[in-house]
Design a protein around this nucleic acid. Structure first.
Length: 1061
RNA sequence: GGGCCCGUAGCUCAGCCAGGUGGAGCACCCGGCUGAUAACCGGGGGGUCGGGGGUUCGAAUCCCCCCGGGCCCA
């Protein structure tokens, strides 16, 4: 047999609660028990953690939100009986960490790294990552995230690297792996290519701005004009791009014909200082297609021997605008991205004439050996000499520089390893179509991206990353892609102690084709490579195939909307490359965390809030619930005020449970032997109402969680406990639990209250795991009911038969009436404490009458009325009394001097005059003995309710309070005034609710004395008085004023129920 | 420059997909309640629903354009 005996501190203190719960979880291994329970289930739920990047040991508020969403979902599915896979991960490789270590070690260039040794450098990177992983893990645990923190997946582990190799092998097997020339930004000082995301810094730089004439073949003195700020790329010119739809003009200048965009002519002529020019002809860009030209530096540049046969005008709308330049774009495919793409499309060879250190190569002929930016002046000089320079000036523009050494970058074609993802485009889209996205628009956005999918450059010339498992035969050029450590040994290699560079670099293989020695390509993979394979790599596939085969596919992933293009995409790409299918089925996209004004939070902007501060000032549950209530996929504006509000809500939750605990333990309520099923016959309508509300909540909650709308569930539990339970149900059952005797009615109320409060804890547990644990321990576990921890519970399912539209509608009507009645009382100045005789309701429709019935008692109690009368529509209005007021504009001109007397008459016989005028249209009266006739123009007719009737409209009809009080109501009201004051004094003495008191009331007021006599028993019951006397007694004495009368009240504690003195 | 999202009271946000008299909380003012009490309840003031145009009997809601913010691309 159980019994409620839990206790709570007076007020909700989140830190006390959370410290207590953390300690409880730790000491009792609650996480392991939860996991163990869940692991027995056959229903699998594969959650995959998007691995955060450990660049520091603390995390952003957005990361906390991210993990809270994951934790809430995991907890829900565990409680729903799923066997949830919950391995967290960290994305540990990549350039950001390399750069941090370079800074730590004071290294400035790639050469410096080679100098201290790759082994030492990589070692430091690994230590750095491990250190931060530990810090982050502490933070996530502290937030209450129940994941497998003892066994996270770390992308730098050898096993993970091996899984990565396997994918590259899979790509190779399908003919998707290629070595290719690609244009990328290059730092000539660090001698490395930079990925797009690394090109983020720009400075204002002065460069030449030149207009160059290319002579058209087959014409005399006819030239096309191009514009460039990078003259050093001219030696590598292969063709010229034009827009088919732009108009071009043939401009005559000094006997030469120059071709340029029509819209640019004036601008260019002005810039070049040419006043004397004529537009001879306007043609469409498409007319230029295929025209061949002669390169002005043909004789100076060796590479032009190859390139000259491609010199012609090519249509490339994507490369040409009319905003700047000449509408004719010089194209050097080895040094420009669009140029490169176009060259690829039309089959022009890619020639790059700049070497690793930024010097022009031999192919650049007379300019060979010159640093690229230095070469500009020689090239311009030669152009001028050859009469190919139309105009020369300089321009200051934003130019990208290396984010580490600030050297201006250049675009350069280099050989990189590529997976030809574009070949998989249709498959990618087809697979993506069958993924369920929340919200819907994320899918649209995702598919749009896939339509423009590009090949994937996986190689980086770096150190801290998964080494490319590609070996090339020095003798015959044969390529082997190694998919595992086993492959390595099979090909005659020795597995090194660590699969990273530089250890792997030393591994030589024997060529299976010619027996020659094979060496590894020195590159590592792109950072996106690592996290994209996590769906199988984190499970140890392909070494351990069973786990992935039993868990696949991933059932749930969630990350911010930046990951639509990021992780969600890289996972799909890897899934299609490896298994030919999508790796996940359901995706929830969440928003970003912005500052209070909707701007990005940045340390440099000064609007950054440390998550640690949120925990210190608020608490874990407060943050979690607040974050989970914001619409998941929308950006979240950070708000201290928003969290304060949640704190208030949690305080109310605390008070609700405190209320229940106090009374249930006082009455030794036994929830185990008083389950709600026992009381099905004695449920009052309000009990049925709250049960209906609860089950409606469960239904909505469950639907929201399965549909990945956790914010709807989080808001739902809030509205239920605050609006339905605290603000309403608790007020309705107070009187029932205050009675001392053990009544069925009281036990029914307890059983219902216990049932809804226990179930609410289960629903709320995924979101606010700390306070629910604490309350569960006190209310449920200590009562001998349930489990050791709320998180070991089973999530309730809704019972459709308990959801009643009728009872809820009835309650809504009752609440409407109560609200209107209270408003009417206020208008009449009637305190709620004083009872009124009756409330009248004139419903707008007759069907409301029956619906009011179940809650008559509720209306009477809440509005403090003796009776409720349903009256006919129109009855209340019929009580209105007509009267008139003088209308001076009508009276003055007619009655002149008699006006004042007429006004007197009107106010004296206001009602009679009103009736007469309404009935007959006029009223005849006497003023100074003289008969006068009043007509509508002399008065304003008004209709008012009588003083004793206060009326308030409501949605269900007019509600009126009859404020005429009989003596009995007056006396009862006075008795309640006395009670209130005694209660106040009890509170002042800090008496417990079980303490009994002796009361003395002395007053000269006749009515109050009578009220005390008449309601003695009532007063005694209400204030736990053992006796009420008019004689003076010892004790706490206080003088009061009740309706202007002096009342002296003295109270003295005698003993409590258990006889304690 | 393109794709997607957001913009509703002083503040934080529901309502929008399925058009039908604009809501909640906080803050402010007034009143009430008082055995959950540093709690609670009622009332009041406060809105060009970012701006403009269109569809419709009727638009916060659907369509188009613009402005501001966010993410991702170029």
């Amino acid at each position: 047999m159980g019994r409620v005996k839990g206790r709570l501190e007076e007020a909700y203190d989140p830190h006390k609660v959370e410290d207590y719960v953390h300690k409880f979880w730790d000491e009792n291994s609650i996480y392991l028990k939860v996991k163990e329970k869940s692991s027995k289930s056959k229903k699998k739920y594969y959650f995959l953690d998007g691995p955060p990047y450990p660049s520091s040991n603390t995390f952003h508020i957005g990361t906390a939100w991210n993990k809270t969403i994951k934790d809430s979902m995991i907890r829900f599915f565990r409680m729903k009986g799923y066997n949830v896979w919950d391995k967290p991960g960290y994305d540990t490789h990549g350039l950001p960490i390399e750069v941090k270590i370079e800074k730590e070690l004071g290294l400035k260039t790639k050469k410096d790294i080679l100098k201290i040794g790759i082994d030492k450098f990589v070692q430091r990177c690994m230590e750095f990552a491990k250190r931060n992983v530990e810090g982050l893990t502490e933070g996530f645990k502290d937030l209450g995230v129940f994941m497998d923190w003892e066994h996270p997946y770390l992308t730098f582990k050898d096993d993970y690297i091996e899984s990565g190799w396997w994918m590259i092998k899979r790509a190779h097997e399908q003919g998707l792996l290629e070595k290719d020339l690609l244009v990328h930004h290059w730092c000539p000082r660090c001698e490395t290519t930079l990925a797009d995301y690394e090109v983020s810094e720009y400075v204002d730089l002065e460069d030449p701005s030149i207009y160059v004439k290319f002579k058209l073949k087959g014409y005399d003195d006819k030239y096309i004009v191009i514009w460039t700020t990078t003259p050093w790329t001219l030696p590598a010119n292969a063709f010229v791009m034009a827009h088919p739809d732009i108009e071009y003009a043939e401009v005559e200048v000094n006997g030469e014909t120059l071709v340029m965009a029509r819209s640019r002519v004036e601008k260019i002529m002005e810039e070049a200082g040419i006043k004397d020019y004529t537009i001879k002809k306007v043609i469409k860009g498409s007319d230029l297609e295929g025209l061949e030209y002669t390169h002005p530096l043909e004789d100076e540049v060796k590479a032009q021997e190859l390139l000259s046969k491609y010199h012609r005008i090519v249509m490339a709308p994507e490369a040409v605008t009319e905003h700047e330049g000449t509408g004719l774009v010089h194209s050097a495919p080895g040094h420009g991205d669009v140029d490169f793409e176009v060259a690829r499309k039309i089959g022009v060879p890619i020639v790059s004439l700049v070497g690793d250190q930024g010097n022009l190569l031999d192919g650049a002929g007379k300019y060979a050996g010159i640093y690229f930016r230095e070469a500009n002046k020689y090239i311009i000089e030669d152009l001028r000499r050859k009469n190919a320079l139309l105009h020369e000036s300089t321009i200051v523009h934003k130019y990208p520089v290396c984010w580490r050494c600030k050297t201006p970058l250049l675009l350069r074609a280099t050989e990189q390893w590529v997976i030809k993802v574009s070949k998989l485009k249709d498959k990618l889209i087809k697979e993506a179509e069958t993924v369920y996205w929340q919200p819907e628009w994320a899918k649209t956005r995702f598919i749009n991206l896939l339509k423009n999918v590009r090949d994937w450059v996986i190689s980086r010339q770096r150190f801290w990353g998964i080494p490319l498992p590609i070996w090339v035969c020095k003798k015959c050029g044969h390529i082997e892609v190694v998919g595992s450590r086993e492959d390595l040994e099979r090909l005659g290699g020795k597995v090194p102690e660590n699969l990273h560079r530089p250890w792997i670099d030393g591994v030589k293989l024997r060529c299976p084709k010619c027996g020659g020695e094979m060496e590894r390509v020195k590159d590592v993979t792109d950072v996106w490579f690592d996290s994209g394979i996590s769906f199988y790599a984190s499970l140890g596939y392909p070494r351990n195939k069973e786990l992935w085969n039993s868990l696949k596919p991933v059932d749930f992933i969630t990350e911010g909307h930046d990951q639509i293009r990021g992780w969600f995409f890289s996972l799909l790409r890897s899934g299609v490359i490896t298994f030919g299918s999508k790796p996940y089925t359901r995706v929830l996209v969440h928003g970003f965390t912005l500052d209070e004004h909707g701007f990005e939070m940045h340390k440099s902007l000064g609007n950054y809030v440390e998550f640690k501060e949120v925990i210190e000032r608020m608490g874990r549950d407060i943050f979690r619930w607040w974050a989970m209530m914001t619409t998941t996929w929308e950006d979240m504006k950070f708000s201290w005020a928003g969290m304060e509000k949640v704190k208030r809500d949690l305080s109310i939750v605390w008070n609700v449970y405190n209320f229940a605990l106090t009374y249930m333990s006082l009455d030794s309520f036994d929830p185990v032997n008083n389950s709600i099923e026992e009381f099905s016959e004695t449920l009052k309508p309000e009990d049925k109402w709250i049960l209906s509300r609860l089950h409606r909540l469960i239904k909505k909650y469950e639907g929201a969680m399965y549909d990945m709308k956790p914010h709807e569930a989080a808001r739902g539990i809030r509205d239920f406990i605050i609006e339905d339970v605290s603000r309403w149900y608790l007020r309705l059952i107070r009187r029932r639990v205050w009675v001392e005797e053990d009544t069925v009615d009281k036990r029914t109320a307890y059983a219902v209250l216990y049932y809804i409060l226990k179930n609410w804890l289960l629903l709320a547990a995924p979101f606010i795991p700390f306070i629910t644990e604490r309350l569960y321990r006190e209310l449920v576990y200590k009562s001998g009911d349930g489990y050791e921890s709320v998180h070991l519970e089973d999530m309730p399912s809704y019972k459709a038969e308990l959801i009643s539209d009728e009872i809820e509608e009835s309650m809504n009507i009752a609440r409407e009436i109560i609200e209107a009645a209270l408003a009417a009382r206020m208008k009449a100045g009637l305190k709620v404490r004083r009872p009124v005789k009756r409330i009248l309701v004139a419903p707008v429709s007759r069907d409301i009458v029956d619906k009011i019935d179940p809650f008559r008692h509720v209306i009477l109690e809440m509005a403090n009325a003796k009776s409720l009368e349903i009256v006919e529509e129109g009855f209340i209005e019929s009580q209105m009394v007509r009267s008139v007021e003088p209308d001076y504009r009508g009276i003055g001109p007619e009655f002149k001097q008699k006006s004042r007397a007429v006004v007197d008459l009107i106010s004296r016989y206001s009602k009679e005059i009103a009736d007469a005028i309404v009935r007959n249209g006029y009223y005849v009266g006497k003023v100074n003995g003289e008969e006068i006739r009043l007509e509508p123009r002399h008065v304003k007719i008004r209709a008012d309710y009588p003083d004793w009737l206060s009326v308030e409209p409501s949605k269900v009809g007019l509600v009126a309070v009859d404020s005429r009080l009989d003596k009995s109501e007056i006396l009862e009201g006075l008795a309640r005034e006395i009670v209130r004051r005694i209660q106040f004094m009890r509170k002042e003495l800090k008496l417990g609710i079980e303490d009994d008191i002796m009361v003395s009331i002395s007053t000269d007021d006749e009515a109050i004395s009578e009220a005390v006599r008449a309601y003695k028993n009532y007063i005694m019951r209400e204030v736990r008085g053992v006796e009420i006397t008019g004689d003076p007694i010892q004790g706490y004495r206080r003088e009061w004023d009740i309706d202007g009368a002096k009342v002296v009240i003295t109270i003295q504690r005698v003993s409590d129920r258990n006889g304690r003195q």
